[in-house]
């Protein structure tokens, strides 16, 4: 089975091909043997891929992973394997928990910026604003004020990147 990783907004799949004697993974059809796998902890790490050392720094931040590798910064997120996402997890806003819609801040067709609150929900007496996952245009708002929803339900959809010019 493939893990779905969103790296800097782009969806990638990474497969575990073998575990013994060394871990072998497949990414975009390329197999890589990972002979030294480092530790799970935050901080500087060294792993070995195809016999070459790869140094990086890594930190956990809630459900995201932050990386510094080869003089670049990356942000990674692991998608729930049950997810149907295909657009890199960036085309829709899902409910992080079951609840009800308190306020809808935007309308279909609105241009929004990443991080802008789209909708305020209430779950377990806590109000939370759900932000836009990226810049884009709102394609659909699937729950209106007062309606309830389940965890992981899609609440807002953004237009496909491809449709925007």
């Amino acid at each position: 089975m493939a893990f779905k990783l969103v790296l800097d907004g782009t969806l990638h799949e990474i497969d575990i091909v073998r575990r013994r004697p060394h871990l072998v993974v497949r990414i975009d059809g390329c197999e890589h043997e990972v002979s030294v796998t480092g530790s799970y902890d935050d901080g500087r790490q060294a792993i070995e891929i195809a016999g070459s050392a790869v140094h990086f720094a890594r930190a956990h931040a809630a459900d995201r992973l932050l990386l510094r590798l080869d003089g670049r910064s990356f942000e990674a997120k692991l998608l729930d394997p049950r997810s149907e996402e295909t657009g890199g997890g960036q085309d829709s806003v899902r409910a992080p928990m079951p609840g009800a819609v308190v306020t809808v801040h935007k309308a279909v067709g609105d241009q929004v910026s990443r991080g802008e609150p789209l909708i305020t929900i209430e779950s377990m007496k806590l109000q939370t604003a759900l932000p836009a996952p990226r810049d884009g245009v709102i394609a659909a708002i699937l729950r209106s004020e007062g309606e309830v929803f389940d965890k992981d339900e899609i609440i807002v959809r953004l237009e496909d990147m491809a449709q925007e010019s």
Partner: peptide
């Protein structure tokens, strides 16, 4: 690919 492996191992 290195970044993806490094990230995956952190999950």
């Amino acid at each position: 690919h290195q970044a993806l492996i490094a990230a995956a191992l952190g999950f």
